[in-house]
Computed example of a mutant assay.
Amino acid sequence: MKKMLSSVQLDSNQRTILVLRLSSLIFFFSSFQSSHGYPSRTHIFIYAACSQEKYQPNSPFEGNLNSFLTSVVSSSSEVTYNSFAIGNGSSTTEEGTVYGLYQCRGDLHPIDCSKCVARSVNQIGLVCPYALGASFQLEGCYVRYEHSGDFLGKLDTSIRYKKCSKAVTNDVEFFRRRDDVLADLQAANGFRVSSSGLVQGFAQCLGDLSVSDCSSCLVDAVGKLKSMCGSAAAADVFLGQCYARYWASGYFDESDSSNNDEVGKSVAIIVGVFGGLAVLVVLLSICKKAAVRFSKDDWRVFWFS
């Protein structure tokens, strides 16, 4: 944190940009509304992952990262998936190149997709400050960037996040319906919604996966849902490049995730802390500039005239 604060104090433009971003975030968090409809749930935080390696402020990587994040927001108003290589093949050194992608849930309207991605972009730098690589998953969209492009199109079934609700006991009909839904989901190519009776679910692969790799990823995700969540009435499993989810009617709501949202609470705390610090830095800067404008004689005129 000391490193981040010292870089903020170096440049007034950086302070201004930080405050603007934090202001939008504070407004975003204050406008949370409880809803059971999927489009309005796109802002819900799922998980974030940050690399331990850091980049230096004002480095070529930071400039390319800002270009990537701007391109992501612009592109998301037109298509639900896109990948980028910023600085590749230019005069920028290899270490300064940024590779990344974003993807929205397949059923989102472009307007909702763009809003979701913009929220992710505004938060990723706060949750993963100066990270050379980061992943950020909201309910409705996903953003990832790295300093190496070897992750693009490469099958990754490592677990990033899981959530299992309370178990359903001795409900043969539920398990039959759930298995029907999961069997349908693992056959998806890209994004698929499925339902059977009161059980619903959906699954999605990243857009850079081949059909065969998408199938392999979803089979793995469904297998993990069954093995890790057992008889849960609702369950989510997010792997490196795909996810699968199911729920019984009435289980997919805010209360179901209340005990599994500690990271989400941390995001809100980070926003509040850095918001207060940023405002304090700007106020001190304004006071300092005001003081410089007055010489000692000027102060005498101000106080005694």
Results as ranks from 00 to 15, higher is better:
Thr169Ala: 14
Cys128Ser: 09
Gly190His: 07
Ser210Met: 02
Ala167Tyr: 05
Ala131Tyr: 08
Tyr145Cys: 03
Ala187Ile: 01
Gly153Phe: 15
Ser135Met: 10
Gln200Trp: 07
Cys141Ala: 07
Tyr145Glu: 05
Pro129Arg: 08
Tyr145Gln: 05
Ile124Leu: 06
Val127Glu: 02
Leu138Ser: 04
His147Gln: 14
Val222Phe: 09
Ser165Met: 07
Leu132Lys: 15
Asp180Ile: 11
Leu132Asp: 10
Val219His: 12
Ala221Ser: 14
Ala183Glu: 15
Glu146Lys: 07
Asp213Gln: 12
Ser196Ile: 03
Gln186Ile: 03
Arg176Asp: 15
Leu155His: 08
Tyr145Lys: 04
Gln137Thr: 13
Ser148Trp: 14
Gly149Arg: 02
Asp180Leu: 12
Gly153Cys: 11
Ala188Pro: 06
Ser148Tyr: 14
Lys163Val: 13
Tyr130Glu: 07
Gly201Thr: 03
Val121Pro: 00
Ala183Pro: 00
Gly207His: 04
Arg176Pro: 02
Asn122Thr: 01
Asp213Tyr: 04
Thr157Trp: 04
Ser194Leu: 00
Pro129Asn: 13
Gly125Lys: 00
Lys163Glu: 09
Tyr145Asn: 03
Pro129Ala: 12
Asn122His: 10
Ser195Glu: 14
Phe191Pro: 01
Gly197Cys: 13
Ile124Asp: 00
Asp179Gly: 12
Ser196Thr: 03
Ser135Thr: 13
Asp156Tyr: 10
Lys224Asn: 11
Asp184Leu: 07
Tyr142Leu: 08
Glu173Cys: 00
Leu206Tyr: 06
Phe136Tyr: 15
Phe151Ile: 06
Phe151Met: 06
Ser195Val: 10
Gly190Met: 05
Asp156Leu: 09
Val211Glu: 11
Val127Gln: 09
Glu139Arg: 09
Cys214Lys: 07
Ser194Cys: 01
His147Pro: 01
Cys205Asp: 00
Gln186Pro: 04
Val199Cys: 05
Asp171Cys: 12
Thr157Gln: 10
Ala221Asp: 06
Leu198Thr: 13
Ile159Val: 15
Leu209Met: 14
Gly190Trp: 09
Asn189Thr: 12
Asn122Met: 10
Asp171Phe: 07
Val199Leu: 02
Ser195Phe: 11
Cys217Val: 07
Asn170Val: 06
Cys128Ile: 11
Gly149Tyr: 08
Ala134Cys: 11
Phe151Ser: 06
Gly125Glu: 03
Ser210His: 04
Lys162Thr: 15
Asn170Tyr: 09
Leu218Trp: 07
Asp208Val: 06
Val168Thr: 14
Cys164Val: 05
Cys128His: 05
Lys224Cys: 01
Glu139Thr: 07
Glu173Val: 14
Leu206Trp: 00
Thr157Cys: 06
Phe175Glu: 14
Thr157Pro: 05
Ala131Ile: 08
Val127Cys: 03
Asn189Gln: 14
Thr169Trp: 04
Phe202Tyr: 13
Val199Tyr: 02
Ser194Met: 03
Asp213Val: 06
Ser227Gly: 10
Ser165Ile: 00
Leu209Phe: 10
